[in-house]
């Protein structure tokens, strides 16, 4: 009888689970430091490579950089045009070289699309000059080539990924260093991203001042793309700060699995419990 019950549980679970079997490959990408050296122009160069296990082509790679304002007192003063931006590179590019001054820190976040799936790399915090290459003063914190198809300066950073349920209202927080950016207005833009998204990490900066909060009740598979406009001096920034995606949760199957194990365990205890009981 216990074998029958066990087989029943297995069959029920398998029938529920097998059709929804996902890709068993580990779908995530990560940064790997390749080298660090001094730049002939001053400062330091760090090269990173984006890696993924057994990956075929990554179709679209989106890499976002942000200079951390916390490490240098002069960051706010020397912060200016071109220091923050979002870059989309050509398919297949995996290697990046960053140039920065001593002790500058940058946040690098990347996501890549493969077919209908988006993969997310861990947020990387790179610190220049830590390997003791010498202190070469540089007024430029970070210096990149930027794509000309992005006419607006962008303060980029995805602070939080949030797993929510369809129909549930979301409360979102926008966190930006208030010394650097003054938020002018909030604008909510919706975009539908096909497929399922990965990425489970959640980062909330407790040092930043909460500037805005909004709520939105989203539909299944919607992804909310929040943009707000900020200004520092004469430069205007568009800030993509939040992306919500909806996990694929199946309550019916979950409750069915639970019921199967309830019944199975009751059956086991009832029919074979005496075998484990004391006399």
């Amino acid at each position: 009888m216990s074998k029958l019950i066990g087989a029943l549980i297995f069959v029920v679970t398998w029938e529920l689970v097998a059709p929804a079997w996902g890709d068993p490959a580990r779908d995530f990408i990560w940064w790997k430091m390749v080298s660090q050296s001094q730049s002939p122009e001053g400062g330091h160069l760090i090269s990173y490579r984006l890696e993924s296990p057994g990956a075929t082509a990554i179709e679209d790679l989106e890499v976002i950089f942000r200079v951390s304002p916390y490490q240098r007192a002069g960051a706010a003063r020397s912060f200016g045009q071109g220091q923050y931006f979002q870059k989309i590179v050509h398919p297949g590019q995996r290697d990046f070289v960053f140039h920065g001054g001593q002790s500058a820190k940058i946040d690098i976040w990347a996501r890549a699309r493969r077919g209908e799936r988006w993969l997310f790399a861990q947020t990387l915090v790179a610190t220049f000059g830590q390997s003791g290459l010498g202190d070469s003063e540089s007024s430029a914190l970070v210096d990149f080539d930027w794509a000309p198809d992005w006419p607006q300066w962008r303060l980029a950073g995805a602070e939080m990924f949030y797993r929510a349920q369809a129909g549930q209202p979301l409360s979102l927080e926008l966190s930006v260093q208030p010394r650097l950016v003054q938020v002018l207005e909030d604008q909510v833009t919706m975009a539908n991203w096909p497929g399922r998204e990965l990425g489970l990490y959640q980062y909330v900066s407790s040092q930043n001042h909460q500037l805005a909060q909004s709520g939105y009740t989203a539909q299944k598979k919607d992804v909310i793309f929040l943009a707000s406009l900020g200004q520092l001096g004469e430069a205007t920034f568009a800030l993509p700060v939040y992306r919500a995606y909806y996990g694929q949760l199946d309550y019916k199957k979950g409750l069915t699995v639970m019921a199967a194990f309830f019944v199975g365990t009751i059956g086991l205890v009832s029919f074979h419990g005496r075998r484990f009981e004391s006399q």
């Binding site: 529920l16 996902g22 890709d23 068993p24 949760l249 199946d250």
Partner: peptide, 18 residues
């Protein structure tokens, strides 16, 4: 209530939820 559901994001989350 979300932990009552099967998480179908990928194979690992699926079996973990099971």
């Amino acid at each position: 209530t979300k932990y009552l559901a099967l998480n179908l994001d990928n194979a690992v989350t699926l079996w973990v939820s099971v």
